[in-house]
Write a protein that binds this DNA or RNA. Structure first.
Lengths: 339, 339
DNA sequence: CTGAAAGCGCTAACAG
DNA sequence: CTGTTAGCGCTTTCAG
């Protein structure tokens, strides 16, 4: 049917035109007469020609590759986000070079360098922290970056998150309204802005009601650690409500309560998570949570990145999208709340 | 700290050597004197030079990019596999260009062409079916492909799966040994080899014991469809055991049984899945299942692909790795089985 | 509108 | 071991 590799030169010969004519036909926004286009398209079709993206990237300086750095995929929020991001980017003619980086500062440096080696047009870093050093490195290389679901103080860096602070507040308000007063928190990894913001909002709203945290455990976004924190917490003075920093941990927390500690959720204790991952709505958990609006987060992320790539003047943006509280069965329902 | 883009030429000038000397220093298995190496490395360090992978790919014909096609990420088996694949490949100096393809024949053609445009060295197709037409196209382009967790009759195509037939048998043997006789199956998408093989093994082992399928539902690997199939199945003559074609559906099946139909699992009905995804071991489900040995599947996949890339003579291989039955609490335990 | 020519940044012979 | 010389396949001036 065709040769191993067909070049524009070969198409040109067959079509009886110059090689640059072929290039023009395949370059969006170039000029060629109808006749030329026809001849070239036919020849290309016959030969099974497709432009070599790498060669194009070399000369144009645009690879149409986006580097995507992801911390880990165990938390269902990330596969979902990855899928949406990749689709949105594909739709715009970009493709995704994926890099999995352990949450380790050494490593992330290496990863970013490797990404840069591919002359990517931009980088999306999901749930990874970036030293300003590194972001500086990218800027020097002319590569734009946006942080997804992670914020950073550096005002030069674009970030897209849900409004974690407001989300934390909503959880506190719900728990308070439901009459809880012995309210505990199981925290995620402290290095994450999501953790800090969620907890800050949560604590602030509690404080406004004159309530202080009854207990606090450290789960680091890891299921097993969250389970252990739960055991410890309930071995001491048990709370009557627990806000877990994300759904992923909350699932483990609920399992521990029910199957190890023999507790009834929400009868003995209310549990609220954050993210609204698919498993949160599974009947076995039916977890009350704050939804992170993944679709809108993805849309914003891609928009910002495209703007930065296409318009060099475009300023960094920092966006926090409000996410709704999803009231389900793992928490006591306050009287008079319209569910 | 450094310029926008540093070329080997600039390093050469600074180091006082030729551009090709610089290239040699950065080309594994090239020869350069200690002195040259030192001078070049220093100059490169000072300038922040890193070779342009794309340019290297163009001339060498090797991009060190692997195209990875994935159907969908909702089933937890795939994020896990993706993570392991990507890590294994990174370890060998390759990187992953990821493509999400709906399970749609039209679409997959487009996706493969796009992948080819990037001059990838190989393709891994996870849970996607490939027309022999397409695989022919890849071969013509000199690109090797291996199918992950999906088999195909085409003997020219390398495939890596778990031993789905044997797995199906194991499930039947377990259910039979536990005394079940009204045994049902909720199937996945019929287009998938995994579905066909699992069911074939299952049915064969039942038949050997003189047992025929009590009922059969169609879930297409989709949670909601599996739930609906469960409702229909129990509205008729209820089975006392159900083999669900994968864990992802089995979770929904269990939830439907327990929370909608008020059934006790495994008291009223045993449920067995396939894959051993993380959620299968969560206490809320505690699902008996057949494990797909992801680590070994990934290792084999990468091995085969690397062999094909490095040794052009290398023949296609077709591998099915045996996976153990993981006995948990969602199924009745046969007397005398050592759990 | 079109062809000729000049590279993009790098590797791979080829002489020395 | 090292520098010189060709390109890899393509886009992009530049004349015409």
């Amino acid at each position: 049917m065709n040769l191993i590799k067909v070049t524009s030169q070969q198409v040109a010969e067959r079509a009886g035109v110059s090689q640059s004519a072929v290039s023009r036909v395949f370059t969006p926004g170039a000029s060629a007469s109808k006749k030329t286009v026809k001849k070239v398209r036919e020849a290309a079709e016959e030969l099974g020609y497709r432009p070599n993206v790498l060669a194009r990237a070399m000369v144009s300086g645009k690879s149409r590759i986006i580097g995507l750095v992801v911390g880990y995929l165990e938390n269902q929020f990330y596969p979902e986000a990855l899928e949406k991001l990749s689709n949105a980017l594909q739709k715009r003619g970009y493709h995704v070079l994926i890099f999995l980086a352990e949450q380790n500062a050494e490593n992330i440096d290496v990863v970013v360098e490797e990404i840069l080696d591919y002359q990517v047009d931009g980088i999306i870093a999901a749930s990874v922290s970036m030293s300003s050093n590194l972001s500086e490195r990218c800027r020097a290389a002319g590569v734009r970056m946006v942080l997804f679901n992670r914020s950073q103080d550096d005002p030069n860096m674009s970030t897209v998150t849900s409004d974690n602070y407001a989300g934390g507040r909503k959880v506190a308000e719900l728990l308070l309204a439901a009459g809880h007063r012995k309210i505990a928190h199981i925290a995620g990894w402290e290095g994450a802005s999501t953790q800090r913001d969620r907890e800050a909002g949560f604590i602030a709203a509690l404080a406004e009601a004159g309530v202080t945290l009854h207990a606090r455990g450290q789960g680091d976004f890891i299921m097993e650690k969250a389970a252990e924190a739960t055991r410890v917490m309930f071995a001491a003075d048990p709370p009557d409500a627990v806000f877990v920093a994300n759904d992923h941990m909350a699932l483990a927390v609920m399992d521990t309560m029910r199957f190890e500690l023999g507790l009834n959720v929400p009868g003995d204790v209310s549990v609220v998570g954050f993210d609204d991952v698919p498993a949160a709505s599974w009947p076995a958990y039916n977890l009350t949570t704050v939804r992170q609006p993944a679709n809108r987060m993805v849309a914003e992320t891609v928009d910002i990145l495209m703007n930065q790539i296409e318009d060099n003047q475009s300023q960094p943006r920092r966006i926090a999208i409000d996410g709704p509280l999803i009231l389900r069965g793992s928490s006591r329902i306050p009287e008079g709340w319209n569910t």
